[in-house]
Design a protein around this nucleic acid. Structure first.
Lengths: 120, 120
DNA sequence: ATAACAGTTGAATAATTGAGCAATCATCAG
DNA sequence: CTGATGATTGCTCAATTATTCAACTGTTAT
């Protein structure tokens, strides 16, 4: 353990070997950035409801707004975030925009989440 | 589709049947609340790094602080959130508190997350 | 008892974020 | 073209949140 690390934190390194091993296996910063951004999309009740609804059926913005009892504006804002995260895709047909899940991982992630909350 | 729902949102219902089916299958509010709270724990770079580190080895607060280049205080605050969400458990041995993952689901959730971000 | 250290906590601050309003865009019907 | 409707966007407000600082607890060693 070098001096630099001790300077960063206000404590002595207790288990240098552990820190070294874990650091050696640590993914690069970008992975954690992407990962936390992915989970941010699931970290809001509105978005998680939208994603869940779309995991059942494709829906338009208006359907989602009625289903969740919110304004189209609020739903549209969240759909934009979900689009930018590549979690949903859309299909414009005339005036109506149909949204659907972009990725099969979304259902997997739901599954693991529900497993966790149901167990406790 | 009854009048109440149209009052809530500023739009006509376009696909009553879709809304009715999805609503019929929708989990109760508490599930979405719990689910989004679970994912909130993964939705921050510091917490996701902590969880990832603990998925490799049990570590004390000081080790984590050095590993992540942050103060013990910041780490401790985040560990408290993770404790309250039942994602980590701790084991105090003298002055040192060792943290470890409380739940095997955490690793599963990581796995799905990494699958997603690596594919795009 | 005192000092040193690991960790926790509460308050304060700064930054982020979600929702609604109002304005706007896009498409379709008359 | 004009009006109506679905959707998007920019803005503001309120609420939440991550970090830091300082004070504090608890444990160990002298």
């Amino acid at each position: 353990m070098d001096k630099k690390e001790q300077a960063i934190c206000d404590c002595e390194v207790i288990h240098e070997d552990v820190v070294r091993r874990v650091r050696g296996a640590m993914p690069e910063g970008k992975d954690f950035y992407d990962l936390s951004n992915l989970y941010k999309m699931f970290a809001d009740q509105t978005r998680v409801r939208v994603l869940w609804a779309l995991s059942r059926e494709d829906m338009c913005v208006c359907d989602l707004a009625v289903l969740l009892g919110m304004t189209k504006s609020a739903i549209s804002h969240q759909l934009k975030s979900l689009r930018l995260s590549n979690l949903v895709k859309y299909d414009k047909q005339g005036k109506v925009v149909y949204y659907s899940l972009a990725d099969s991982h979304v259902k997997d992630i739901f599954e693991k989440g529900f497993e966790h909350i149901r167990e406790k």
